[in-house]
């Protein structure tokens, strides 16, 4: 069987191009593929569009590093610490360069990915009628429902170039398991041209086949699998890793000024040089985040005879 296993550096080099639309925050506040953002910054990718309903500090650091030209999303900041300083600098002062914003709500962004995944030309909704999102995002059109003759909003499809998804475990063939809250992982994985999995563990394909209902994005949609233990740090991963709240708080403080943000980038992105270097730098901090409690689900029987 062919393997999709590769290194993160190779996956980013071959599958992410300047100008791509990239999904990094599909799990919302869990399973954020931070290791991929670090590699994108190290390889100096430019003019990317960030696509995600909410972007915790992963989006903010990509903006500060100059990788992002446009934000397509509903929320950008630092979930537990507050506003995103790099986001504010880019929008308010054009630093390090101006960025464009396409405003959505969480639900309409998710529907745009759903439409991209399943070939819908647009999705008619009522949810954001009356909101100024209708004004600041010119791609969302106002129309009349042909059935009820009442106002509706039309959400156009999104088909991102690349989606990075952090998962608990994956096999070399691209099949994977992910659990906990799923955010828009399925819609992003089904809509994106190229899906790259950051797997906390690599397992035999039989492990995945033992519970196919837990496969959220099928392996045939996956371009590459990268083994990145704790690659979602500092975000959490259900059943595997706790959230490193202090890391978000420290980032918030250090990103307040461009100079201290550059120092942060040097310390946590450039000098570690790779996911392995980053883990080594975290050192014993990683062990304190590892979930040791066992709260196992009862197996589901798929027997056939």
């Amino acid at each position: 069987m062919s393997t999709k296993l590769t290194t993160l550096a190779e996956a980013v080099r071959t599958l992410v191009r300047d100008g791509d639309q990239v999904v990094l925050g599909a799990g919302l506040e869990q399973a954020i593929p931070f290791a991929a953002a670090h590699e994108i910054i190290r390889q100096g990718k430019r003019n990317l569009t960030s696509v995600a309903p909410i972007s915790d500090m992963v989006g903010d650091m990509l903006i500060g590093a100059g990788c992002i030209a446009k934000v397509v999303g509903a929320w950008m900041g630092n979930v537990s610490a507050g506003l995103g300083h790099n986001y504010r600098r880019a929008v308010e002062q054009g630093l390090p360069h101006p960025i464009a914003i396409e405003d959505y709500s969480n639900f309409t962004l998710a529907l745009a990915l759903w439409a991209g995944a399943y070939g819908a030309p647009y999705v008619p909704v009522r949810t954001i009628l009356g909101s100024d999102i209708m004004a600041s995002n010119p791609k969302i059109l106002k129309a009349e429902d042909p059935y009820t003759k009442t106002p509706i909003a039309l959400i156009p499809p999104l088909r991102p170039d690349v989606a990075f998804l952090s998962v608990q475990r994956a096999a070399a063939n691209g099949d994977s398991h992910v659990w906990g809250n799923l955010g828009v992982m399925q819609e992003a994985g089904m809509a994106a041209e190229r899906v790259i999995l950051l797997a906390d563990q690599i397992v035999a394909s039989e492990v995945i086949a033992s519970d196919p209902n837990r496969v959220i994005v099928p392996g045939f949609r996956v371009a590459a699998v990268v083994h990145t233990p704790c690659g979602q740090h500092p975000s959490p991963l259900a059943g595997h890793w706790k959230r490193d709240g202090d890391f978000f708080t420290d980032y918030h403080r250090l990103s307040r000024e461009p100079e201290s943000f550059q120092a942060w980038l040097k310390e946590w992105v450039f000098e570690p040089g790779s996911p392995e270097g980053y883990l080594a730098k975290l050192g014993r901090r990683v062990e304190a985040l590892r979930i040791r409690e066992q709260a196992l689900s009862v197996p589901a029987n798929y027997g056939a005879s």
Binding site: P53, A74, M76, E92, S105, T127, S131, I133
Partner: peptide
């Protein structure tokens, strides 16, 4: 040309609407 860029809707617009 905003004076302050706040994080945005998240799900708030959907909750308010529906």
């Amino acid at each position: 040309k905003p004076k302050v860029k706040l994080p945005g809707s998240g799900g708030a617009a959907d909750i308010a609407g529906m």
